[in-house]
Design a binder for these strands. Structure first.
Length: 531
RNA sequence: GUCCGGUUCGUCUAGGGGUUAGGACACCGCCCUUUCACGGCGGCAACACGGGUUCAAAUCCCGUACCGGAUACCA
């Protein structure tokens, strides 16, 4: 039988990074085995499920590149089948009606209330002491006929145990005595999670269930349902949890936005990088390698390589530099600077568009092919390739890299302090350097019309504005002033780009172009904030 | 409480009877350099604890501690 796995999130919020990893591992497993990866939305909790969550999950899946191979299944659509299954088990005597009145909802945390109750009962609780378990069929039928409300519970056998070989955790066994007679159908007729999951997994012909470790005990309950239904259970594998720095399960409620996949998309992460990082959370190919393409992951993935211990997703909520896991940030930067340029370009385009920095001239179909023309596709490609070397996220293209694409950019305080304030002479030197550029390079290299040409007054020399010539001119200028090259270069860097970090200044000059260079060197704007 | 699981540098991890316990991120230093968060070289830093088995234990066994998960008419 060919492998069929599923990812089954409940749409009660955005897509969780831990859930995303489960999806990824399912996907990798399916791909490797030549099987199918399915998606089922577990929307049976009407009170909490929202269409918006479903959309967000689908969006996240699409972004991270995990498309299901078949139609999406909505669990709520199968409620009738779930009810039928429960009634069948009831008819077969494998389940019973529980007429115990439904408990009033607890106020405060449900979780802690459950825990408290369990603790109070201790290990003393007899899971088989429900009086309705032994109610005669006649009386049960009669009370049901009299419209007395009841839940349907599974009649868990008295003696024995459930056992299964977990793909990650090995042999798992649990005495029946540890498992309660779980409710299959609520008294309002609503089917409950474990029943719904089993019915749907059977219907979808799931062969392997790969999910979080928090489902380990559910698995024992589900196996009991499979047995009652007379269906062979699938294989199971449970994944270690992803924890927050405190050591607690990474949760939406406690940890907030940091656990949402969309946070990373919106923060300028490359999907491939995020996927790569996630794959290494709780799994290892046992080799000294960090960067894996999707193909490599599919090739090397194995449940044997999945850990039993949980991993901590490391971050510092109040530290802007470490707002998320260090390694994730590094990996994203690594992808940005090493991925094939043609794969990166569309992402940069999207980012620049969002920041209103995109120009139609950057389109590949643009006819102007001059590298020196700041309004050409070739210039755009070259610039992206140049500046990506020091960027960490796609956002950097529109923030740190803003000066390459716009005349409207800010000057970083630290850059001004470090590169301008300390050298007051630059206030006159840099405009002088601009004049020198004007004399040496003129407007020969400005192939397009525009306001900036006016700044050149139609005069100027004929040297090409390239790295070699720029270096010659700047060096000569530096010697005349009796200063260091670094002083001039860093001063110019600050005026030209607004920041202290960037590629080689010679490249920067060239990419910014002679016209913009001259204007920016003469501008007094940055100097206004120097005391 | 009970059941299940875990514990190797700060974090992600390799190793699974004999290793100078390896790599990555982060951090620090040096080099390169006009800047730098690129790159190169180097450094700091770990087998939870106690018993046992063994010539030899991070590795196998037992116990302890600590951590996590589960324990619903939620999913």
């Amino acid at each position: 039988m060919s492998v069929r796995v599923r990812f089954a999130p409940s749409p009660t919020g955005y897509l969780h990074v831990g859930a995303t990893r489960s999806a990824l591992f399912n996907y990798l497993y399916a791909r490797q085995k030549g099987g199918k990866f399915l998606l089922r939305i577990e929307d049976t909790d009407l009170a909490r499920s929202t269409d918006e969550s479903t959309r967000s999950i689908l969006e996240g899946m699409a972004w991270i590149g995990l498309a299901p191979d078949e139609e999406i299944v909505f669990q709520s659509a199968n409620a009738d089948k779930h009810r039928a299954a429960a009634n069948r088990l009831l008819a077969e005597g494998k389940a019973y009606r529980d007429f115990t009145p439904k408990e009033a909802p607890v106020d405060g945390s449900v979780k802690s209330a459950i825990k408290e109750r369990a603790r109070a009962q201790g290990g003393e609780k007899n899971m088989r002491d429900n009086p309705y378990r032994k109610l005669s069929t006649e009386e049960s039928d009669a009370r049901a006929a009299a419209s007395e409300p009841f839940a349907i519970r599974l009649k868990v056998p008295e003696m024995g145990k459930t056992a299964f070989e977990d793909g990650v955790f090995g042999l798992q066994q649990r005495e029946y005595a540890e498992t309660e007679d779980l409710v299959l159908l609520r008294s309002d007729g609503h089917p409950l999670y474990n029943l719904a999951v089993v019915c749907d997994d059977i219907e979808m012909e799931i062969t392997d269930v790969i999910r979080g470790q928090d489902h380990l005990t559910n698995t024992h309950k589900q196996i009991l349902i499979y047995e009652a239904l007379g269906v062979a259970p699938p294989k199971f594998a449970h994944l270690p949890l992803i924890l927050a720095p405190g050591g607690k399960k990474l949760s939406k409620r406690i940890h907030g936005e940091i656990v949402s996949l969309t946070t990373y998309r919106d923060a300028g992460f490359v999907a491939a990088a995020f996927r790569n990082f996630l794959a290494l959370m709780g799994w290892s190919a046992s080799e000294e390698k960090e960067i894996y393409s999707l193909e490599e992951l599919v090739d090397k993935f194995s449940l044997a390589g999945v850990h039993r211990s949980s991993a901590i997703f490391n971050y510092e909520p109040n530290n802007p530099k470490r707002w998320t896991d260090d390694k994730l940030i590094w990996m994203n930067a690594e992808y940005i600077r090493t991925m094939p340029l043609d794969e990166l370009l569309p992402f940069v385009k999207t980012e620049l568009k969002a920041a209103k920095l995109w120009r139609e001239e950057y389109e590949e179909s643009s006819t102007n092919l001059s590298l020196l023309d700041i309004r050409s596709y070739d210039w755009f490609v070259r610039t992206v390739d140049l500046i990506r070397q020091r960027f960490f996220t796609l956002k950097d293209f529109s923030s740190q890299g803003r000066a390459y694409f716009s005349e409207d950019y800010d000057f970083d305080e630290a850059a001004i302090a470090k590169n301008l304030s300390k050298f007051p002479d630059l206030k006159t030197w840099l405009p002088e350097l601009a004049d020198r550029f004007e004399t040496e390079f003129g407007s020969e290299n400005s192939p397009h019309e525009g306001g900036v040409d006016a700044a050149l007054g139609g005069r100027g020399g004929s040297l090409t504005f390239n790295e070699e010539n720029i270096e010659t001119v700047v060096k000569a200028f530096t010697e005349e002033k009796g200063t260091k090259l670094g002083v001039i270069m860093n001063g110019a860097r600050t005026l030209l780009t607004g920041v202290a970090v960037g590629p080689s200044m010679l490249s920067v000059f060239e990419v910014i172009g002679v016209e913009r260079t001259i204007i920016r060197l003469k501008s007094q704007m940055a100097w206004n904030s120097v005391n």
